[in-house]
């Protein structure tokens, strides 16, 4: 007998009775048979217990998953819904993602382009230097909001005199000056990583790398919920 073979009628009926698949008349008939057959009732009890055990063991398994993992999954779902909604509303290219797409398209040629752009920039600087003594007149990358007063105009500018390089584990001053230009869109390369919290995840988007961490307390907070 295998899975494709028809079951003996008694077995099929008892199982269908247990699973609530019989119509009322057939169910009554089986119930009457059960009344006079303790062995059959024992068999039914075994099936019932098996169902409870399977349910409970998988409930317990699900409780082992930290709440934070589900939060991360929700974030992914939420992002996907947002993407779906955006593409439904505006199928044409959004201006904000233009750079990302250009960057992706040019990715294979990034190294030669950077080399060429670098060479060109050096040549321009050389030409300018020959005509003017001022350095950093035209920053390559647009500066961000207002640089704080007294701060250097660009990261290439020399650090202020007397500004101390952090010595071994030095707390940094709370309000510093240096405003860096707009960051370059690129993934980071992770050489080694250790997550100490409950969970951790790395997401490379092509223009920025995001590390997601979660404090243990956060994940424990709501994990007591039962199924």
């Amino acid at each position: 007998m295998n899975d494709e073979t028809e079951l003996p009628k008694a077995d099929a009926e008892l199982q269908a009775y247990f699973d609530g698949e019989l119509d009322a008349a057939a169910a009554q008939e089986v119930a009457r048979t059960l009344d006079g057959d303790p062995a059959l009732r024992g068999h039914l009890a075994g099936m019932s217990l098996m169902r409870d055990l399977v349910n409970r063991s998988l409930e317990m398994k699900a409780l082992e998953v930290p709440r934070a993992r589900f939060e991360q999954i929700w974030d992914e779902i939420d992002r996907t819904i947002e993407r779906d909604t955006r593409s439904a509303r505006a199928p044409q290219a959004a201006p904000a993602s233009l750079w990302a797409r250009i960057a992706t398209a040019l990715r294979p040629f990034r190294a030669p382009l950077l080399a060429a752009a670098g060479a060109a920039a050096v040549a321009i600087v050389a030409v300018r230097l020959s005509g003017s003594p001022e350095v950093n007149q035209a920053p390559e990358v647009a500066s961000l909001p207002e640089p704080p007063a007294g701060g250097p105009a660009s990261p290439d500018a020399p650090a202020p005199q007397g500004s101390k390089v952090a010595d071994r584990t030095t707390p940094a001053p709370a309000s510093e000056d240096a405003t860096l230009p707009q960051p370059r869109p690129a993934d980071a390369e992770i050489h080694g990583i250790e997550f100490g919290g409950k969970t951790g995840r790395i997401s490379h988007t092509g223009t920025v790398t995001v590390l997601y961490v979660e404090e243990e307390d956060d994940s424990q907070k709501k994990s007591e919920r039962s199924l």
């Binding site: 399977v54 998988l58 398994k61 699900a62 589900f70 999954i73 929700w74 779902i77 919920r225 199924l227």
Partner: peptide, 15 residues
């Protein structure tokens, strides 16, 4: 709805 069913769905999928 997600929060209501996340662990139930997980239990099924893990099963």
């Amino acid at each position: 709805l997600f929060e209501r069913y996340e662990r139930k769905v997980y239990a099924v999928a893990y099963g």
